[in-house]
Design a protein around this nucleic acid. Structure first.
Length: 1070
RNA sequence: GGGCGGAUAGCUCAGCGGUAGAGCAUCGCCCUUACAAGGCGAGGGUCGCAGGUUCGAAACCUGCUCCGCCCACCA
C-alpha cells in the first residue's frame, strides 16, 4: 500500500534523464520532458545556422517584417515584454514556415529620463555623487556602461524565450546611424517650419528638472485637495471680491481677476481694480466668458497666467502680464515677496497665514481635483513658463488620420481605431526638448547674439551673423522622438537601402495598448512624413499582463516577474503557450501559475505521445508519399477520422492566426493534440500496433506518424523548442528526410475536411462513451470486463463502421463479449441501457447492477430528455416560430425532437422493465444474482435463484451474412485486450463488486434530493444536442448525444462543434 | 466631465442572435507497459440588475449598479 505513492514520488523527484546527449539521431526519449536541456541546445543551433537572418535581396518570397518594440535599456524584461516577444515570434515563425521572407528586427531604446534617473540614483548610492559632480561627459560614460550591461541581458532573455530575432540587425536608438536619422528629421522639420522654439507654459517636473510632454503627465483622479477662498479688497475701498483657489501660493503671480461678463453680481466691477494684499500691486478685474463659470465658487477667478494653462490662455486673450513666481526647483522666486525663497508647499501654508492675519481669509472646503504628476518621479508637476522646442503636430497628424480612415493601416482589435482617432484629432503641439544629458542632443547652436543655427553637423559659424563662437543647445530630445523613427531608421534611413525597399512598410506593429499615443501614433506621423508611406499595415495591440490579483505589474508594487524565472521553472514553451492562450482580444491578461503548470503538462503530454510513437515504430520507415501512398493509405474509419480532425485543427489554427486570435490558435492545437490525438487516436491505435496484421499496422503507423509530425509543425510557432526536439527525433526514427529543422519546414496548409469521415466515426466514440459512462455510474472498475454486451438499433452505416472498429471498442471499453445488430437489443433483466443517436447499448450486469442506481440513472437521463424535448416542442408548437424562423432551424429542431422521442421511448421501456424486475425479485432477494448468464468475473455471489436468460447471444436468430441485420459477435478469446491480459480476466471479481455494491444506493439517495435541479439542468442540456452538426446540415441522424455527460466529450469531437468557429471566423474576415 | 473595456460554473476565462463551454479546482474509480505533469466517470451556472427589440437574447438596443483603463487646463 505504501508502495504506490512512493513510486509516483520517485518519478517526480527524478524526472530526467537517461539521455541528455546532444545527438539528433537518437530515437529514445526520456520519460518526462526536461525543458532545460532541450532549450539550451536548440537556440544556438538555429542562430548559428542563420535561420533568423532575413535576406533583403531575396525577392522570390513575399516579405514579412516586424520591428520589435525596443525595450528600455534601463533594466531587464518583464512579462509584458515576454508577451510581446512571444506573439511576435509566433507570427514570425508561422510566416517563415509559410514561405515568407521574414525580418524581425531587434533593438533597444535609450529611454532618456528613465535611464538617467536610474544611473543617477545608483551613482548617489554607491559614490554619493550627483551627475553634476561628474560632469556631462563623465556621467554619460557611466550610462553607457550601464547600457552595455543591460542591453546584453535583454538579448539573453529574448534568447531564452526562443525569439527568432535577426540579431545581425540589432539597433540601439543612440547608435550612430539612428542618431543621424534623428538629426536629419529634426533639421528637415525645422526647415519646414514644423519644429520651433518658443517660450510657452509647459509641464515642469521640479524633481527631474525637466520639461515633459503632455503624455508624460499622469493625472491622479480626485485628489483630496482644498478649495480655499480669500478676498481681494477693491482699490477704491468700496468692497471686496472673493476668489477661490486650490493653489494659494500662486496668488503672488495673479495679474487679473476674471468674472463672467453676464454675471449681475460683478457687472459693475469690470474695469475696476483690486489691491494685492501681500505685494504692492493693483490688479484689474476683467470679463472672460470662456474661463469663468458663474456657477462655480464665487464666480470670480484669480488669474495667474504664468502658472496655469487656463490662465495662460486668458493672459493671451487680454494681454496680461506673465509673472513667474515659482522657480525651476519648485521654490518661490524673488517676485514672491513675503514668501520668496520658500518651497512651493511651505509658501502655500505661509500665504494662508498672512492672508488670515489681514482678515481676508474667507474659509475653505474640501475639494477633489485632478492632480498632475510626473510619470517617472511622481512629483506634483508645476506649469511653468520656459523656452522649449516643439513639433507643430497638426500638419503631421492630418495624414496619419487619413491613412487610418482609408484603411492603409488598421487596428486590431478595432476598438483602438476610435482611441487613436480621438487623440489624433485633439492633439497639441509636442514638447520635445528635455533638460537631460542622456539622449540625442538637440542639433541647434546659439551665437552670442542669440541667433539659432540648426544643422545636421556641428556648424562652424552662425548662419545669421557669421559669429564663430557657437554653443550647442544643452537639451536633449524626448526619447519618443527617436522611437518615432524606429521602423525606418533601423533599416538604414536616410539612405535608400535595400532593406527599406524590401521590408518597409512593416507588416505588423505588435505592441501594448499603453503606448498607442506615445509610440504608435508618432510612428504613423513620422513614417508618413518621411517615407511617404505608413510604417505598418496592421497594428495589433495586445493586452496588459497583470498579476494573479489583476494588478498591473510595476517595479514600485514589486510584483514584476522576470520571464527567466518562469522559463527556468516551467520552460519557455509552457510560458509562451500560456501567454498565447490567455491573449484574447479586448481583455487584460491575468497570469496565474496554475495556467502555466497546465500548459507545461501539455508539453509533457506531447512529449509522451511522441515517446509512445517511437516505441511502436521500430523497423518502420515512412512511405514515400506519406499517408497518401497506396500501400500506406489509411484503411480504417479511425484513421480517416483522425486525419479529418487533423485537417480541421490545421484550418482552425491558421484561421485564428490570420485573425490574431492567438488564444483560439492555441486552443485548437491543444484540443486536437490532447483530446483527439492522445485521448482517442493513440488509444484506438493500440490494437493495430500491438496486433499482427501487417497492413493494419502499416496504416496505423503511417497515420500516427503523419498526425504527430503535422501537429509538431502546427505547434512550432507556439512551442518552438519541444517541437524541434521531437520532430528531429521522430525524423531520425522513421528514416525520413523532412528537413534540417522544423523551423524551416513548411507550415501545414489549409484544406478540405473529410466531413463524412468525421461523421461516420461518431457511433464508435458514442458507443465507447456510453460504456464508460455505465461503468462510471455503476462503479464498475475497468479491469472487470463487460460481458454479453448488446449493441443494437444501429443504422446501416453506423452498423458497418462499428463492426469495422469492433476490436477497438472492445479494447477501449474492456468488453469481453459483444453482439452488434441492426435490431433492437433484447431485454435482459439486471442490465444497464444507454440510448445514443443511431444506436442503443445494453450491458447485462448480473448481480452487480443495483436496481436503485440504474433506475436513478435512467430517471436522470429521462428527465434530461424531457427537458430538452419540452423546450423544443414548445417552440415547434409556436406558429410564429415555425413561420418565421429559418427553415433549417425548424428542420433541425424537428429532427431533434424525433430523435429525443425515440430515445425516450427506449429508455421508458427499459425503466418499465426495471420496475417489473424489482417487483418480482428485488423485494425478496435484494442481493440476488440477476445475471442472465453465469458470469464468473462479475457475478458475486454466484447465482442461486435466477434461471439463465431466455436467449443467450449464441441463440439469437441467425441472419444472412452481410445483411444489415447481421449480428457480429466478439468473444473474449478473440480480443487482443483479453488475450494480452489473462491475469486481469481471471482476477477474483469479489473486490470490485463488493466495492461497487454499496455505492450506488448511496449515490441514488443523494441524487433523489435535487430532482428539481436535475430538471433545470436537463432543460439547459437540450442545447447541447441541438448544436449537433448533422441536424444543422439537414437533420441526418448522428451518433451523438448519448447518455448523460458522454455528450460533453462527444461534442468536442463532433464535426459540428468545430464547424461553428470556422464559420464564424469566415464571417469575421469578411 | 467624456470615452473604452469588463461583470458567464468555486477560480481564470471562451462564446457575442437558435436557448451554456474550456482549463484549473471539487467528488468517485484507476499506477491499464506513452504520460499520476496521467486515464475514466461525475457534480457544479435564474450568463450583474431592470426594461425593450425578436418567433427566439448570455449575445442586439436603452437605462442602472459595481470593477478596471484611457482622455480632459474647471478656479
Amino acid at each position: 500500500m505504501t508502495l504506490r505513492p512512493r513510486r509516483a514520488a520517485e518519478r517526480l523527484a527524478n524526472p530526467l534523464s537517461e539521455n541528455d546527449v546532444n545527438d539528433e539521431s537518437r530515437t529514445e526519449l526520456a520519460k518526462g520532458y526536461e525543458h532545460r536541456e532541450v532549450e539550451a541546445r536548440w537556440y544556438p543551433t538555429w542562430k548559428e545556422r542563420g535561420y533568423f537572418h532575413a535576406d533583403e535581396t531575396d525577392r522570390s518570397r513575399p516579405p514579412f517584417s516586424i520591428v520589435l518594440p525596443p525595450p528600455n535599456v534601463t533594466g531587464s524584461l518583464h512579462l509584458g515584454h515576454a508577451l510581446t516577444a512571444t506573439l511576435q515570434d509566433v507570427l514570425c515563425r508561422w510566416k517563415r514556415m509559410s514561405g515568407f521572407n521574414v525580418l524581425w528586427l531587434p533593438g533597444t531604446d535609450h529611454a532618456g529620463i528613465a535611464t538617467q534617473m536610474i544611473v543617477e540614483k545608483e551613482l548617489q548610492r554607491s559614490e554619493k555623487k550627483s551627475r553634476h559632480d561628474l560632469g556631462r561627459a563623465e556621467f554619460l560614460k557611466r550610462v553607457w556602461t550601464w547600457k552595455e550591461k543591460y542591453g546584453s541581458r535583454i538579448g539573453e532573455q529574448h534568447a531564452a524565450l526562443g525569439a527568432s530575432l535577426d540579431w545581425a540587425r540589432e539597433r540601439f536608438t543612440l547608435d550612430e546611424g539612428l542618431s543621424r536619422a534623428v538629426r536629419e528629421v529634426f533639421v528637415r522639420l525645422h526647415e519646414e517650419g514644423l519644429v520651433y522654439r518658443e517660450q510657452k507654459l509647459i509641464n515642469w517636473c521640479p524633481d527631474c528638472r525637466t520639461a515633459l510632454s503632455d503624455l508624460e503627465v499622469t493625472y491622479e483622479e480626485g485628489h483630496a485637495g482644498e478649495l480655499w477662498s480669500f478676498a481681494y479688497p477693491l482699490s477704491d475701498g468700496s468692497g471686496e471680491v472673493v476668489v477661490a483657489t486650490t493653489r494659494p501660493e500662486t496668488m503672488l503671480g495673479d495679474t487679473a481677476i476674471a468674472v463672467h461678463p453676464d454675471d449681475e453680481r460683478y457687472r459693475g466691477l469690470i474695469g475696476k481694480k483690486v489691491v494685492h494684499p501681500l505685494v504692492d500691486r493693483e490688479i484689474p478685474i476683467i470679463a472672460d466668458a470662456i474661463l469663468v463659470d458663474p456657477a462655480f465658487g464665487t464666480g470670480a477667478v484669480k488669474v495667474t497666467p504664468a502658472h496655469d494653462f487656463n490662465d495662460f490662455a486668458v493672459g493671451q486673450r487680454h494681454g496680461l502680464e506673465l509673472l513667474t513666481v515659482i522657480g525651476l526647483d519648485g521654490t518661490m522666486n524673488a517676485e514672491a515677496g513675503p514668501v520668496a525663497g520658500l518651497d512651493r508647499f511651505a509658501a502655500r501654508k505661509k500665504v494662508k497665514e498672512l492672508i488670515a492675519e489681514k482678515g481676508l481669509d474667507r474659509g475653505s472646503k474640501p475639494h477633489a481635483l485632478p492632480l498632475g504628476r510626473c510619470q517617472r518621479s511622481e512629483t506634483i508637476l508645476e506649469p511653468l513658463l520656459s523656452q522649449q522646442w516643439f513639433v507643430r503636430i497638426e500638419p503631421l497628424a492630418r495624414p496619419a488620420i487619413e491613412a487610418v480612415e482609408r484603411g492603409k493601416t488598421r487596428f486590431i482589435p478595432e476598438q483602438w481605431t476610435n482611441t487613436y482617432m480621438a487623440w489624433m484629432t485633439n492633439i497639441h503641439d509636442w514638447c520635445i526638448s528635455r533638460q537631460l544629458w542622456w539622449g540625442h542632443q538637440i542639433p541647434a547652436w546659439y551665437c552670442s547674439d542669440g541667433h539659432i543655427t540648426v544643422a545636421r553637423e556641428t556648424p562652424v559659424r552662425c548662419t545669421s551673423c557669421g559669429k564663430q563662437e557657437l554653443r550647442q543647445d544643452e537639451d536633449v530630445l524626448d526619447t519618443w522622438f527617436s522611437s518615432a523613427l524606429w521602423p525606418f531608421s533601423t533599416m538604414g534611413w536616410p539612405e535608400d537601402t535595400e532593406t527599406l525597399r524590401t521590408f518597409y512598410p512593416t507588416s505588423v506593429m505588435e505592441t501594448g495598448h499603453d503606448i498607442i499615443f506615445f509610440w504608435v501614433a508618432r510612428m504613423m506621423m513620422m513614417g508618413l512624413h518621411f517615407m511617404g508611406e505608413v510604417p505598418f499595415r496592421d497594428v495589433y495591440l495586445h493586452p496588459m499582463v497583470r498579476d494573479e490579483k489583476g494588478q498591473k505589474m510595476s517595479k514600485t508594487k514589486g510584483n514584476v516577474i522576470d520571464p527567466l524565472v518562469i522559463t527556468e521553472q516551467y520552460g519557455a514553451d509552457a510560458l509562451r503557450f500560456t501567454l498565447a492562450a490567455l491573449t484574447a482580444q479586448g481583455r487584460d491578461l491575468k497570469l496565474a501559475k496554475e495556467r502555466i503548470e497546465g500548459y507545461r503538462a501539455f508539453a509533457n503530454k506531447l512529449w509522451n505521445a511522441t515517446r509512445f510513437a517511437l516505441m511502436n515504430l521500430s523497423g518502420f520507415t515512412v512511405a514515400e508519399g506519406g499517408v497518401r501512398a497506396a500501400h500506406a493509405a489509411p484503411t480504417t474509419p479511425a484513421d480517416r477520422w483522425i486525419l479529418a480532425r487533423l485537417q480541421r485543427a490545421v484550418n482552425d489554427t491558421i484561421d485564428a492566426l490570420e485573425g490574431y486570435r492567438f488564444n483560439d490558435a492555441a486552443g485548437a492545437i491543444y484540443q486536437f493534440v490532447w483530446h483527439e490525438l492522445c485521448d482517442w487516436y493513440i488509444e484506438l491505435s493500440k490494437d493495430a500496433l500491438y496486433g499482427e496484421d501487417p497492413a493494419r499496422k502499416q496504416g496505423t503507423r503511417t497515420v500516427l506518424t503523419h498526425c504527430l509530425e503535422t501537429s509538431l509543425r502546427l505547434l512550432h510557432p507556439l512551442m518552438p523548442f519541444i517541437t524541434e526536439e521531437l520532430w528531429q527525433t521522430l525524423q531520425a526514427q522513421v528514416g525520413a528526410r523532412w528537413g534540417d529543422s522544423i523551423m524551416v519546414a513548411r507550415y501545414p496548409e489549409k484544406g478540405a475536411v473529410d466531413e463524412a469521415a468525421e461523421r461516420s466515426f461518431g457511433p464508435v466514440i458514442g458507443l465507447v462513451d456510453a460504456l464508460r459512462n455505465i461503468r462510471g455510474e455503476m462503479n464498475i472498475p475497468f479491469k472487470v470486463p463487460l460481458r454479453e454486451v448488446q449493441v443494437g438499433a444501429l443504422a446501416p452505416e453506423a452498423l458497418a463502421t462499428v463492426r469495422e472498429e469492433l476490436s477497438r471498442v472492445v479494447r477501449l471499453a474492456n468488453v469481453a463479449g459483444l453482439t452488434v445488430s441492426a435490431r433492437p437489443t433484447r431485454k435482459v433483466p439486471g442490465s444497464a441501457v444507454a440510448v445514443g443517436s443511431g444506436f442503443e447499448v445494453r450491458v447485462p450486469l448480473a448481480g452487480a447492477v443495483d436496481m436503485a442506481s440504474e433506475k436513478a440513472r435512467i430517471a436522470k437521463e429521462l428527465a434530461r430528455i424531457e427537458g430538452d424535448l419540452g423546450g423544443i416542442e414548445r417552440k415547434l408548437a409556436n406558429p410564429s416560430f415555425v413561420e418565421r424562423a429559418p427553415k433549417d432551424v425548424v428542420e433541425k429542431d424537428r429532427a431533434r425532437a424525433e430523435e429525443l422521442k425515440e430515445k425516450r421511448r427506449r429508455l421508458e421501456a427499459h425503466r418499465d422493465m426495471l420496475a417489473e424486475v424489482e417487483g418480482t425479485t428485488m423485494t425478496e432477494t435484494p442481493n440476488s444474482n440477476l445475471t442472465p448468464t453465469p458470469n464468473p468475473d462479475v457475478a458475486t455471489p454466484p447465482a442461486p435463484a435466477m434461471p439463465p436468460p431466455a436467449t443467450p447471444p449464441a441463440a439469437s436468430p441467425p441472419q444472412p451474412a452481410g445483411s444489415p441485420d447481421a449480428t457480429a459477435t466478439v468473444t473474449p478469446a478473440a480480443t487482443p485486450e483479453t488475450a494480452r491480459k489473462p491475469a486481469a480476466r481471471r482476477a477474483p471479481a469479489k473486490k470490485p463488486v463488493a466495492k461497487a455494491a454499496p455505492k450506488p444506493a448511496a449515490k441514488a439517495k443523494a441524487k433523489a434530493k435535487p430532482a428539481s435541479k436535475v430538471k433545470a439542468k436537463a432543460r439547459g442540456k437540450a442545447a447541447v444536442a441541438k448544436k449537433s452538426a448533422p441536424a444543422r446540415k439537414g437533420g441526418k441522424a448522428k451518433a451523438k448525444g448519448l447518455v448523460a455527460r458522454a455528450r460533453g466529450a462527444l461534442k468536442k469531437l463532433s464535426a459540428g462543434k468545430s464547424k461553428k468557429p470556422v464559420g464564424k471566423a469566415a464571417r469575421k474576415r469578411r
